[in-house]
Amino acid sequence: NKFNKELQWATWEIFNLPNLNEEQVKAFIDSLRDDPSQSANLLAEAKKLNDAQA
């Protein structure tokens, strides 16, 4: 299933962003679980936040 692979990839990527704190990671993962179809958008937002906090 396409969404499942995207969800797994986005989850792994978010867990490995070095500049997000635990609460931010949890919030993004919760959002992914709530709406897996938004995984690409949520990953992009997480990466933006990660870069901003570098």
Rank of each mutant, 00 (worst) to 15 (best):
D30G: 09
S31I: 10
K2F: 09
Q24P: 00
A10K: 02
K26I: 10
Q8I: 12
K5G: 09
E13G: 03
N19V: 01
N50S: 11
E23Q: 13
I29V: 06
Q38I: 06
E45M: 08
L49D: 01
L42T: 10
R33H: 15
D35E: 06
S39K: 03
K26M: 09
A10D: 03
S39G: 05
P18N: 06
L42F: 09
A46M: 02
L32R: 00
K5T: 11
A27S: 11
K26T: 10
S39F: 06
L43Q: 03
L7E: 07
V25F: 03
N50W: 01
K47H: 10
L32S: 01
V25L: 06
F15N: 14
S37H: 07
L20Q: 00
L7Y: 06
N41A: 11
A40E: 10
K2R: 10
I14Y: 02
K5F: 03
K48I: 09
N21S: 11
L17R: 00
F28I: 07
P18I: 11
N50T: 01
F15E: 15
K2P: 13
F28Y: 07
Q53F: 06
K5A: 07
R33P: 01
A54S: 12
I29M: 07
L7M: 06
T11F: 14
K47A: 04
Q8D: 12
Q24M: 04
A44I: 14
L42G: 01
N4D: 15
E22D: 14
S39Y: 13
N21Q: 08
P18E: 09
A52S: 10
N50R: 01
P18K: 09
Q24S: 02
L49Q: 06
Q8A: 15
N19W: 14
I14M: 03
A44Q: 12
N21Y: 10
L7H: 03
A27F: 14
D51G: 06
N16W: 05
A54I: 11
S37K: 08
N1T: 04
D30Y: 07
D35W: 06
N50Q: 02
F3Q: 13
A40W: 11
D35K: 12
E13R: 05
L17Q: 03
W9M: 14
K5E: 15
L20M: 01
E6N: 05
Q24D: 04
I14A: 02
Q8T: 05
D51V: 07
K5R: 04
N21L: 09
S39P: 04
F3M: 14
D30S: 11
S37R: 08
E22V: 14
F3P: 15
N19D: 06
N50G: 02
A54R: 09
D35Y: 07
Q38L: 08
Q53Y: 06
S37G: 08
S37Y: 07
A27M: 13
K48A: 09
N19K: 03
W9H: 12
E13T: 06
K47V: 10
E23R: 10
L20R: 00
A52R: 09
N16T: 07
N4I: 12
K2V: 07
N21D: 09
D35V: 05
F3W: 05
A40Q: 12
L49E: 02
L43W: 03
K47Q: 10
T11L: 15
Q53I: 08
W12T: 15
E23S: 14
L49H: 02
A10Q: 04
F28V: 02
Q38Y: 04
A27W: 14
W9V: 10
D35N: 09
L49G: 00
A46H: 01
V25W: 02
N50M: 01
K26F: 07
A54P: 06
A52M: 11
F3H: 14
L7V: 12
L42W: 05
F3V: 14
Q53D: 03
W12I: 14
L43S: 02
L32P: 00
Q38T: 03
L7Q: 04
D51P: 01
F3I: 14
I29W: 04
S31R: 13
L32F: 03
N16A: 10
N16Q: 14
S39E: 03
E23P: 05
N21I: 06
I14S: 02
A10G: 03
Q53H: 05
K47W: 05
F3E: 15
Q8H: 06
R33S: 10
L43V: 15
K2H: 15
K2S: 14
Q24G: 00
S31V: 10
E45Q: 13
Q8W: 14
D35L: 05
L49K: 06
N1K: 05
A54G: 09
R33V: 14
T11N: 03
E22I: 13
A10N: 03
N4W: 15
K48Y: 06
V25N: 01
W9E: 15
L32W: 02
N50K: 01
L32M: 13
D34G: 08
K26Q: 07
A44N: 09
W12V: 13
E6F: 11
N16S: 08
V25M: 06
N4P: 12
K48V: 08
I29E: 03
L43H: 02
S31G: 08
I29H: 04
Q24E: 04
L17D: 00
P36N: 03
Q53E: 04
E6S: 04
Q38M: 12
Q53V: 06
K26R: 08
P18H: 08
E13P: 03
K5D: 15
N19T: 03
D30N: 10
K5S: 12
N1E: 14
P36H: 03
I29L: 10
N4Q: 15
L43K: 02
N1V: 04
A27H: 13
E22H: 13
